[in-house]
């Protein structure tokens, strides 16, 4: 299955694991996409290599940004509109809200605006308690429908 086929498969089934498996960086980071109770969630497994401050037991802020960007990309791909090319990130603004500890991290993306050329996405990122997010982000993506 090439990347395009994996994207088509993911759109049809909601299961993007074949797609994630082809992206070296997501493997390196321990990032996967999981459907939990009908929601597409990004999941980043804890590993030593994502730590930013070993003394404070805090994850590196950049890894939270990466998880949120990846979750947003797959949320854009999963939508019903015919987006089958990986959307290009125009920009992302990350707010760091709480220290993220040495444990698994989750993210969920929601569209704030879906246009034909640009999608605006809001992303939340949490660890044990979804009501206490560790980070939030806004991202814009350039879409290439049907191309």
């Amino acid at each position: 299955m090439n990347l395009r086929e994996a994207i088509v498969h993911g759109k049809a089934t909601g299961d993007f694991s074949a797609c994630v498996a082809q992206i070296a960086y997501l493997q390196f980071m321990g990032i996967s996409m999981e459907v939990v109770a009908g929601e597409l969630l990004g999941h980043m497994a804890y590993s030593e290599r994502i730590v930013g401050n070993a003394r404070a037991d805090a994850l590196h802020g950049g890894t939270l940004g990466a998880l949120m960007e990846a979750t947003a990309v797959f949320t854009v791909l999963a939508q019903e509109a015919p987006v089958i090319k990986v959307p290009k990130t125009i920009g992302i603004t990350v707010d760091y809200l709480r220290s993220a500890g040495r444990r698994d991290t989750w993210a969920r993306a929601l569209f704030t605006r879906q246009g034909r050329r640009v999608a605006s996405v809001r992303i939340l990122c949490w660890q044990q308690d979804r009501d206490k997010p560790v980070a939030a982000a806004n991202a814009h993506f350039l879409l290439s429908p049907m191309s």
Binding site: I23, A24, Y25, L26, G65, A66, V86, T89, I92
Partner: peptide, 22 residues
């Protein structure tokens, strides 16, 4: 290991985010 698009070999945006943060 940091590639985000296997068809082009371009680095994932998350890598740039982490490097910019550091």
């Amino acid at each position: 290991r940091l590639v985000g698009n296997p068809e082009t070999g371009v680095l994932h945006g998350g890598v740039i985010t982490a490097a910019m943060d550091s």
